[in-house]
Design a protein around this nucleic acid. Structure first.
Length: 848
RNA sequence: GCGGGCGUGAUGGAAUGGUAGACAUAGCAGACUUAAAAUCUGUGGGCCUUAGUGCCGUGGGGGUUCAAGUCCCCCCGCCCGUACCA
């Protein structure tokens, strides 16, 4: 019998697919199109099991759709700009460009043996000038359409390296290389006006039915629509021009509980006071220390500084509320100023307690509850409470009703107005870095900021740069900056900032529809191929990448680069989990953990007998040495085994633990299927046997279950069914015809997951052409119905017996049979049941 | 801090509110073999001098329901995101 040799089989069929050109996508109006896309990788240099899993899932969908008659687009590219390339240049020398393209070549070489159904003719990298030149064209069109503007924003500033740091380069408030205390610093930067679309981006989420609910919810919360009251406190003894402080609150119903006003350290009033008062200047400087991340700002100890200025309450003009500058108030949100109601807000409570400010309740759980609180009282807005200091609406009402009543009351009395605000901020796209897409504008002394002319695109990155000094090499390049002003022609300088790499990944899916065009997209291609029918990627991209892409699709529609129908570019989204592996660690001399490679550990021990500590299910990472190299797996077992395993053991949305025994088991199974095929091929073609019908029934059930599994991303469940069907076939004594049909069908059902072995079996069994293009088998409903079903009998919800009945037996007859069973009779003790529930085909529950 | 998710045998996991543990792995027992590997078969949550269609059991505590792993509330742990990592 022929032996299963994946290396030989896999190489042969990959050549056959390439020769047949079956994965090269072309417009074909006669077939329904299907665009499947996995989030493209960053070219780090090595593929890992996470990639294998991600691309295998997409491949299963793509191959399945080919076999159901679709014209499939399944492209691949590289998210190739970004910091690691610059870091590598700094750490080991070389050039980001060389490093990146070398990595791409390596990774492509590692991906090809997986046998993915990718149209490689459409491949591109975002660092190709042909790509980022078109991105610059989009930038100019967006600018022209008013979708981009400039404003100030704070960045992490390293005062020793004199450079801007990314958030991940700030460790415990210090620069990662210099160790200096990081400060916030304001820079003028470019912004996409995504916040103008906040309402639309939120409401459109409702129609994304084939997106995970959790992702829609996360985006909704991120956009953060709120209805509130914007109004002003008048001030006493404030500097000129600040006789009012405008605040925004989502809880106007707590207005009578206000005990202080808080303003951001970046509020215009704070900035004015800073000029006059060195103490305030010192406090504001203190607030500006530390990083710019929300987590850092929110968890920092709350600090306030009493400005000495007092505010009058709109409904109690004798009152004098202190105005504090506070470090937890963000200038970006609302008006940069709040009123604090410590009785009903955790943060305000902490602040008021620290600075001994009054705590005044405005509502209580019941009218007779104690007014004096020991903790902030923050019930859900939907809960009814008693307003002891209400001023609008009913005495007892929900927070929601009270908020609406308060807004109406305030508007009627000329105290501010109800407004809808969003948490979503504009998207700052400027980066003070080299390895990104240059922003195509020129700064001219006479004309100001001038867009570059389209015919001058792409504005290419210069190659002759060095990374010996921190900061952006474009800034210190001797000639690259010099350029004539596109408007007046006088000498001017280029913008040296490049674009956020999220820009690159916000439209690549559209570019795949016409990757070589000399415009960003081509109408016919975009019209035909968009949208992405199935998008697959990690949950870590739930908010930023997906939200930015939704914004870009809208902006591209406005500027004529995408059709109206593509404003939501991803029809269906699937978020997959990570691939994890145990960590093996021992303790080093300094008490720190020392990590060991899986191949160095046998039975929990190192070669020298040292016991290792095993940490389960950790995300694979090089530093922890728990990375399993896909190439090694492919060399040992073949790509089909790797593909089968990453799909089999875990639901795709969850993390999968890589285990050597699991991979071994996958290999054994494929061997078994291979051997069954070989056995059937050697059968006497006219041989008859026993129970052909049983085998064919199992086959039709398998067709049904696997089809459902593939269509619903239940790959692990589909594989479990394939195990079951394989076991039936292996034991079957059926005749040749039935067994031959069964093995051919098995090969087809396995083809999306193990395409090479399936082609081999298909060919062995005399199948026509390629299994990759053969039509997907159809389950015969008639072959799937069982005549009898086994119903469990429950007594008071606990299983106490079972009956076997015809599948179509009426409810009342099932009830009679159930009541007659020994178990029920025993439980009834001659009495009558209180209730009998019969769920046809499912269960019988008798309540006694 | 905030937003979202997850938690089931020794292990990965299955289960439209309806028989908890499908399928797979480790382990154990057996067949084949001179022996081993490979292969095949069985077993495979815990408890019990009552071995029973017995009791307990899906992170912990409470609730809704004829029925809860699944729905609701509180708590614990882990993971993702938190706007300059990609």
């Amino acid at each position: 019998m022929a032996v299963y040799t994946p290396s030989e089989i896999e190489a042969r069929w990959q050549v056959a697919w390439e020769k047949a050109g079956i994965f090269t996508a072309q417009r074909d109006e006669t077939k329904p199109k299907y665009y499947v896309l996995e989030m493209f990788p960053y070219p780090s240099g090595r593929i890992h099991m996470g990639h294998v899993r991600n691309y295998t899932m997409g491949d299963v969908i793509a191959r399945y759709k080919i076999s159901t008659g679709h014209n499939v687009l399944h492209p691949m590219g590289w998210d190739a700009f970004g910091m690691p390339a610059e870091n590598a240049a700094m750490a080991i020398g070389g050039h980001p460009k060389t490093w990146t393209y070398d990595n791409i070549a390596d990774m492509r070489g590692q991906m090809k043996p997986l046998g993915l159904s990718i149209d490689w003719s459409r491949e591109f990298a975002t660092c190709d000038p042909e790509y980022y030149g078109q991105q610059q064209a989009l930038f100019l069109d967006f600018l022209d359409a008013g979708l981009i503007h400039r404003k100030n924003a704070s960045v992490n500033w390293d005062p020793i390296d004199m450079t801007v740091l990314a958030n991940e380069q700030v460790i415990d408030g210090k620069g990662w290389r210099s160790g200096a205390d990081v400060e916030k610093r304001d820079l003028t930067q470019w912004f996409f006006k995504i916040s103008d679309m906040a309402g639309e981006l939120k409401s459109a989420l409702d129609d994304l039915e084939n997106w995970p609910a959790k992702v829609r919810l996360m985006q909704e919360n991120w956009i953060g629509e709120s209805r509130g009251l914007q109004f002003a406190f008048s001030t006493a003894n404030a500097p000129e021009g600040f006789d009012r402080v405008e605040v925004y609150t989502t809880r106007p119903d707590t207005l009578m509980g206000a005990s202080f006003i808080g303003i951001s350290a970046d509020h215009p009033l704070a900035k004015q006071l800073e000029k006059e008062n060195p103490e305030i200047a010192a406090f504001c400087a203190e607030c500006r220390k530390g990083g710019t991340t929300a987590a850092e700002i929110e968890t920092a100890e709350k600090m306030g500084f009493d400005t000495g200025i007092r505010a009058r309450h709109p409904f109690d003009t004798d009152s004098k509320l202190p105005i504090y500058i506070a470090n937890f108030i963000l200038m970006d949100y609302g008006t940069g100023a709040i009123f604090g109601c410590p009785a009903h807000d955790e943060r305000d409570w902490d602040f008021a307690t620290k600075y001994e400010l009054p705590i005044i309740s405005t509502f209580l759980p019941t009218p007779d509850a104690d007014e004096k609180l020991t903790t902030p009282y923050v019930p859900a807005k939907t809960e009814e409470v008693y307003y002891n200091r209400g001023f609008a609406g009913e005495e007892t009402q929900t927070g929601e009703a009270a908020i609406n009543a308060a807004i109406d009351f305030c508007e009627a009395n000329g105290v501010g107005q109800g407004v809808t605000k969003y948490r979503l901020r504009d998207w700052g796209l400027s980066r003070q870095r080299y390895w990104g897409c240059p922003i195509p504008v020129v700064h001219c002394d006479s004309c100001g900021v001038v867009p570059e002319k389209k015919e001058n695109l792409p504005i290419e990155l210069p190659f002759d740069v060095d990374f010996d000094t921190p900061g952006n090499p474009l800034d210190r390049h001797p000639t690259w900056r010099d350029t004539p002003c596109p408007s007046c022609g006088k000498p001017a300088t280029r913008e040296t900032d490049t674009m956020d790499t999220f820009v690159d990944s916000s439209w690549y899916f559209a570019r795949f529809t016409s990757p070589r065009a000399d415009t960003p997209t081509v109408k016919e291609d975009a019209d035909y191929w968009m949208n992405v029918d199935q998008y697959i990627g990690g949950i870590e991209h739930a908010i930023l990448h997906l939200l930015y892409s939704r914004f870009f699709a809208r902006a591209m529609q406005i500027t004529g680069h995408l059709p109206e129908s593509a404003v939501e570019p991803f029809n269906a989204l699937f978020t997959q989990g990570m691939v994890t592996h145990e960590i093996y660690q021992t303790e080093g001399d300094n008490g720190r953990p020392v990590y060991h490679l899986p191949e160095d550990v046998t039975d929990g021990k190192l070669a020298d007998g040292t016991e290792v500590q095993i940490v389960p299910s950790a995300k694979m990472s090089k530093s922890k040495k728990n990375v399993v190299d896909p190439l090694g797996i492919i060399a040992n077992y073949g790509a089909d085994t790797a593909r089968w395993f990453v799909l089999s053991d875990s639901p795709p949305e969850r993390d999968v633990e890589w285990t050597a025994s699991g991979a071994e088991a996958a290999y054994k199974h494929l061997n078994r299927v291979h051997n069954i095929s070989a056995r059937i091929a050697e059968m006497d073609k006219s041989a008859s046997g026993k129970d052909d019908d049983g085998l064919l029934r199992a086959m039709h059930k398998a067709i049904h279950d696997v089809t459902v599994g593939v269509e619903t991303f239940g790959f692990n469940a589909a594989i479990a069914k394939l195990y079951g069907f394989t076991a039936v076939l292996q034991k079957s004594k059926a005749g040749y015809a039935a067994q031959h049909e069964a093995i051919k069908t098995l090969a087809q059902l396995m083809a999306p997951m193990t395409p090479h072995l399936s082609e081999h079996i298909w060919a062995t069994q005399g199948g026509a052409d390629l299994v990759a293009t053969a039509p997907w088998p159809k389950a015969d409903e008639a072959m799937m119905v069982d005549d009898t079903v086994t119903l469990p009998i429950q007594i008071n919800g606990k299983r106490r017996g079972e009956i076997s009945v015809p599948a179509d037996m009426p409810k009342d007859e099932v009830e009679k049979l159930a009541l007659a069973t020994q178990a029920v009779q025993k439980a009834l003790e001659g009495g009558t049941p209180k209730k009998v529930i019969v769920v046809p085909g499912r269960i019988v529950n008798v309540v006694v």
